[in-house]
Amino acid sequence: MTPHFGLPEFGFLLRGLQWTVLLTVVAFVGGCTAGLAVALLRTCGHKGVEWITRIYIGIFQGTPLLLQLFVVYYGLALTGLKLDAFVAVAIGFTVNASAFLGEIWRGAIQAVPRGQTEAAMALGLHYSSRMRDIVLPQAIRISLPATIGFLVQLIKGTSLAAIVGFIELARAGQIVSNQTFQPLLVFGVVGAMYFILCWPLSWWGSRMEARLALASQR
């Protein structure tokens, strides 16, 4: 006899949700760190370095995320490096996120008026201080809506991790659905979980956007 959707099944979905959140956090934190480096290199003023970063961004924006996950999981295995599924997808998502966040922040850095950098230079401030004290605080504000938007995409995108056998929320839903034959109910619950995760972020993002629009009118 087939089990009905009950507490144990719900608990299984919750564990999947946990992995989704964990994967998102790791990929986002890692992606932010690496993405900041990408954005800084992309705007450093050295033509060669800017080109290399541009190609890096181009590769990860121009190929399917699925392919990138395959390359990390199976590709690295071919070289003898057998990675745990979580580590593999975490690396894949981190690298992918670094390219997208790098590009978002590149745009934000360049959106800070040139006069800000000039004033900082005229005051004798070095690159590190110009970035840390002047440009980045303004760039982060500018990029916040897009960054939050990317985070929401990332949360939903982690469902791709199922493809290499990692059991996150979507994959957990599939398993429970196959066991209970109640796909509508199960995927309804899964959808609701994603929604509860993403919607407040989206709401926060659009509120930030409205506030920024208001601030720039002043």
Binding site: A119, A120, L123, H126, D133, I134, P137, Q138
Partner: peptide, 26 residues
């Protein structure tokens, strides 16, 4: 020292912070 046509004050800092940053950092 330089003064610009478009002021170029740092908008995310108070007037006082604008004046204190460079002496502290540079």
């Amino acid at each position: 020292g330089m003064v610009f046509q478009s002021f170029n004050l740092f908008p995310h800092m108070t007037v006082l912070q604008n004046c204190m940053l460079a002496p502290i950092r540079a």
